[in-house]
Amino acid sequence: MGLISDLPCLLSGCLLLSTLGEGAVANKTSTRSRCPPDYVYISGWCYVAFGDLLSWSEAYLECARLTEGASLATIRNEQDQQILGHLLASTTARKQAWIGLRRSNGYRWVWVDGSRFRLQPFDLLPWSAGYDCAVLDTSGDSPTWVAESCSNKNSFICQMPT
């Protein structure tokens, strides 16, 4: 790899992303073959944040168009939540992004990839009635989840298998 071929990665913050935490690896390293450029690798998944403002359903469809098995992001643990919060802050000017968590039948929260929703170890803000979709909110000291109306327009984070 020459300096010129590394320039886009340097300009887009790949080096910054490689310091986000253990398990988060930017494409500048050996995971380049696993994830497309501008994606971050975390535990078998490639993640990317989009600054486009879409409703939850529109964001869901955009993620699904990336590749087979792609979806809005599932946050599996607190470390992933921190890394994805940094990804959002470093690649978009947005403070909130849709994630793959949605209320089903008006009361039960489910992840779009079928993963089990667990309240622990996350520190959640109160959920509001009628707000059936979740965003990752980075406006505070650390990322958290907030329920919003699914028709609101937000940026979004997608995941795809490696």
Results as ranks from 00 to 15, higher is better:
residue 2 G to F: 01
residue 7 L to R: 12
residue 7 L to T: 13
residue 8 P to V: 04
residue 11 L to K: 11
residue 12 S to A: 15
residue 13 G to P: 06
residue 14 C to P: 06
residue 15 L to P: 10
residue 15 L to I: 14
residue 16 L to W: 07
residue 17 L to W: 09
residue 18 S to E: 12
residue 20 L to T: 15
residue 20 L to P: 07
residue 22 E to F: 11
residue 23 G to C: 00
residue 24 A to V: 04
residue 24 A to M: 04
residue 25 V to L: 13
residue 27 N to I: 10
residue 27 N to S: 15
residue 27 N to M: 11
residue 27 N to F: 14
residue 31 T to W: 07
residue 31 T to G: 05
residue 32 R to C: 12
residue 36 P to Q: 07
residue 37 P to D: 14
residue 40 V to N: 05
residue 41 Y to A: 10
residue 41 Y to R: 08
residue 41 Y to V: 04
residue 44 G to A: 00
residue 44 G to C: 02
residue 46 C to T: 04
residue 47 Y to A: 03
residue 48 V to K: 13
residue 49 A to G: 06
residue 51 G to A: 15
residue 54 L to T: 08
residue 55 S to L: 06
residue 55 S to T: 15
residue 56 W to Q: 11
residue 56 W to T: 06
residue 57 S to Q: 08
residue 58 E to H: 10
residue 60 Y to E: 13
residue 60 Y to F: 10
residue 62 E to D: 13
residue 62 E to S: 15
residue 65 R to L: 09
residue 66 L to M: 11
residue 66 L to F: 07
residue 67 T to F: 10
residue 67 T to M: 14
residue 68 E to C: 05
residue 69 G to H: 01
residue 71 S to F: 07
residue 73 A to D: 02
residue 76 R to C: 08
residue 77 N to V: 03
residue 78 E to F: 13
residue 78 E to L: 15
residue 79 Q to T: 14
residue 80 D to F: 05
residue 83 I to G: 00
residue 86 H to C: 12
residue 87 L to E: 07
residue 89 A to S: 14
residue 90 S to P: 05
residue 91 T to C: 00
residue 91 T to V: 03
residue 93 A to I: 13
residue 94 R to A: 13
residue 95 K to R: 15
residue 95 K to V: 14
residue 96 Q to W: 11
residue 98 W to F: 01
residue 99 I to V: 12
residue 99 I to P: 03
residue 99 I to M: 04
residue 100 G to T: 00
residue 101 L to P: 01
residue 102 R to K: 05
residue 103 R to Y: 04
residue 103 R to V: 10
residue 104 S to Y: 12
residue 105 N to L: 12
residue 107 Y to I: 10
residue 108 R to N: 01
residue 109 W to L: 04
residue 110 V to T: 04
residue 111 W to M: 00
residue 114 G to P: 02
residue 116 R to C: 14
residue 117 F to M: 06
residue 118 R to W: 03
residue 118 R to N: 05
residue 119 L to C: 09
residue 121 P to M: 00
residue 122 F to G: 00
residue 128 S to L: 13
residue 128 S to N: 11
residue 130 G to S: 06
residue 131 Y to A: 15
residue 134 A to P: 02
residue 135 V to A: 06
residue 138 T to F: 01
residue 139 S to T: 07
residue 140 G to L: 06
residue 140 G to Q: 06
residue 140 G to F: 01
residue 145 W to M: 12
residue 145 W to I: 12
residue 146 V to A: 09
residue 148 E to M: 09
residue 149 S to K: 14
residue 151 S to C: 02
residue 151 S to T: 09
residue 154 N to A: 09
residue 157 I to A: 03
residue 157 I to P: 05
residue 159 Q to Y: 01
residue 160 M to D: 03
residue 162 T to N: 07
